[in-house]
């Protein structure tokens, strides 16, 4: 895969919620890791003395993981979140394993199934649609 495959994410470092890619079938399926650390800035006040990964940021981590499956060089925006469920709290020290699977695409829209787990237990799941706003260099 050459250089850091995470660098294809358009987000700046401080808004990157994926730490590492474990498996990748380009355009089809990706498994990534997000390590939740007590040093993560958003945990200081969410909540004071009781750090808990915000559900929306868990969704962001899943969305960014899905974004890794888009054609390189493309940019996209979130168009839909469906069937989002949060089953267990995610706290500092947790290593979140995120799986994104491309379900179907139509024109600029792409639908993904997302699952996040910690230690083999499902913590969150969702279906999302990403809309490509700038096509990439190549299809995938």
């Amino acid at each position: 895969m050459g250089e850091d495959p995470l660098s294809r994410l358009p987000h700046g470092i401080s808004f990157r919620f994926v730490d590492r890619i474990l498996e990748m079938i380009p355009g089809k399926r990706v498994v990534a890791l997000k390590n939740v650390s007590v040093d993560d800035p958003y945990l200081r006040d969410h909540f004071p003395g009781n750090p808990l990964m915000p559900g929306v940021l868990l969704v962001e981590a899943m969305v960014q993981t899905a974004g890794l499956l888009l054609p390189e060089g493309s940019s996209a925006v979130l168009a839909q979140i469906k069937e989002a469920r949060f089953r267990r709290p995610v706290v500092p020290g947790d290593q979140v394993r995120i799986e994104a699977e491309h379900r179907t695409g139509l024109g600029t829209l792409h639908r993904f199934t997302l699952r996040a787990s910690v230690g083999g237990s499902l913590v969150a799941e969702a279906e999302i649609v990403l809309a490509i706003t700038t096509p990439g260099d190549r299809g995938s």
């Binding site: 168009a79 839909q80 379900r103 179907t104 139509l106 024109g107 829209l109 639908r111 649609v129």
Partner: peptide, 13 residues
């Protein structure tokens, strides 16, 4: 809209 179309495509499949 187009998101509904994607939903229908999956549903028909």
């Amino acid at each position: 809209d187009s998101i509904d179309a994607l939903e229908l495509v999956l549903g028909l499949e």
